[in-house]
Design a binder for these strands. Structure first.
Lengths: 281, 281
DNA sequence: CTGCCCTCATACCGGCGAGGTATCGGGGCG
DNA sequence: CGCCCCGATACCTCGCCGGTATGAGGGCAG
């Protein structure tokens, strides 16, 4: 099976529509139809059922979509990491990705400590939106990542736990609820005039709901100050807060575990050193 | 990057010789040379240095070999699991792989317990030589595996620990050393008339050394009975031993952890059920 | 019931590129 | 110095990928 076939298949599966997939791939519909049919013949399996309003996946197709995405990410990772090897020729370097606006204190400590190591290498820090770190690690855009359980999917990675912490509710300083000693998640989500913001999915779309669409943390903290929303964050985020905000501990929120994660077959000395440094913090 | 190019590259890297790789791939040497050159151009990286006695990998080439093998295994896994989905249409089934001759008692308990579950499915058991289980899981020939730490590489898999046990030395019943209460690994490996057997590598070759080449467990136990060799095994192996053998605990051997492992993105109900059953043993 | 539309499949054609054969260049080694 | 081994280059052929034109079949409206 060639990666070209796999890319075609994934496009059709995601669009549920051969014509749209062809447009997305920048090609005509007939060759795409033929490529899919040929793939089905070679695999000896129907991947789609053709309907009058498009196509839908069979169970074999669902398997191939799930496994194929992993395989494509692995091929992309191989390609990207090879390119990076030659770019980084001589001076080794490492790409570290983390959620924008999160764990900045931890990151600063980590980078400082690593820079002081004898085997330190350049660290390129890529801050990206929530949920993008794990995919970047999978397809080779990053070599190491700071992830947060239970939100990020770390399956397939090696990880070291760094911090386990409770979550707190951030809300406007003057708000009646800010006087509370503590709160449950149920109470926090049902404060009538403070709808929690909506986080974007990985594809950029937003779930439905009353809260504002969250794009960037400082912007949302501004909205909290203005009394328009509230926010659930790990308690370490308190350190970065400015005036106008109150903090109430949540008693039953799941604990957040911050981990450092890397691809299991990584052999980069930079990654190894960074992980070792992180474990000592 | 296409999987065809990757396969070509891996073949050349493994042979360190374009002509031999071409023969292995069933093609002529010039198109292979050209394909590699084209891959290098597209990646913008030299993958090999050409020498008069063949080729050797550059550091970029080493990266691509390491990552490319993972990627190829992922593509093969996608293909194989898709084929298996259609073969297994209707009655779900699971392929479980384990080391031949090991953990038979555990396996029997697991399979019996799972068969009694309400959501039981067919389990095809594939017994294979030591070290072959993890690769089979990686490239889709198996859905679940019984692995043994620290020998097997479980990176990239989800695992549940099943048993942790010490190792023992198995030796002929009449041998002077069989009277010992316990022994260290150093002592065990230096019994002059009992060289430990050599285990094959994954590629089928054997390391150098004085001991017999180990192929299958019962055969080697026969050799132990005949006073030709001794054997280090997890203590659970005592259960399957017959007469003529003595057992001496090893005090400083690493503990062996038996785990059940599966690919992280597995969604098979059979795998899930098997893992759940194993966790309850 | 009929005709239109939407969507995927089939038919046919042209060009790129993968693979084959023949041959060259260049570095060890006798 | 000449031979041999190994990879690179030159050149050709043909398979297959992608494009355009058109067919087939199932909903849905009038």
């Amino acid at each position: 099976m060639e990666t070209r076939e796999l890319r075609y298949f994934v496009a059709v599966a995601e669009e549920s529509h051969v014509g749209r997939a062809a447009r997305r791939l920048g090609m005509a519909q007939p060759p795409l139809s033929r490529a899919i049919a040929q793939l089905e013949r070679r695999l000896g399996a129907d991947l789609f059922v053709r309907g009058p309003r498009g196509v839908t996946l069979t169970s074999a197709g669902e398997t191939l979509l799930r496994e194929g995405r992993v395989a494509l990410a692995a091929v992309e990772a191989a390609e990207r990491r090879t390119r990076r090897t030659v770019e980084a020729a001589g001076r080794a370097s490492v790409v570290l990705t983390a959620k924008a606006g999160a764990s900045s204190e931890l990151m600063a400590k980590l980078l400082d400590a690593f820079a002081a190591e004898p085997d330190a290498v350049d660290v390129e820090v890529v801050l990206s939106p929530p949920g993008h770190q794990a995919p970047m690690l999978r397809d080779g855009r990053a070599d190491v990542a700071i992830l947060h359980l239970p939100f990020d999917d770390v399956s397939g990675f090696d990880v070291d736990r760094l911090v386990v912490e409770d979550q707190v509710l951030i809300l406007p300083a003057g708000h009646p609820a800010s006087a509370r000693e503590s709160m449950t998640v149920g109470e926090a989500t049902s404060i009538p005039d403070l709808p929690l913001p909506r986080w974007p999915h990985v594809d950029g779309s937003y779930p439905d709901g009353p809260g504002p669409e969250l794009r960037d943390l400082t912007q949302v903290l501004q909205l909290v100050r203005l009394g328009r929303t509230a926010l659930v964050l790990p308690e370490s985020a308190r350190a970065g807060l400015r005036d106008g905000l109150a903090v109430v501990p949540l008693t039953d929120a799941p604990q957040v575990t911050t981990v450092i994660a890397w691809p299991p077959h990584s052999t980069s000395t930079g990654v190894a050193g960074l992980v070792r440094t992180a474990a000592r913090l």
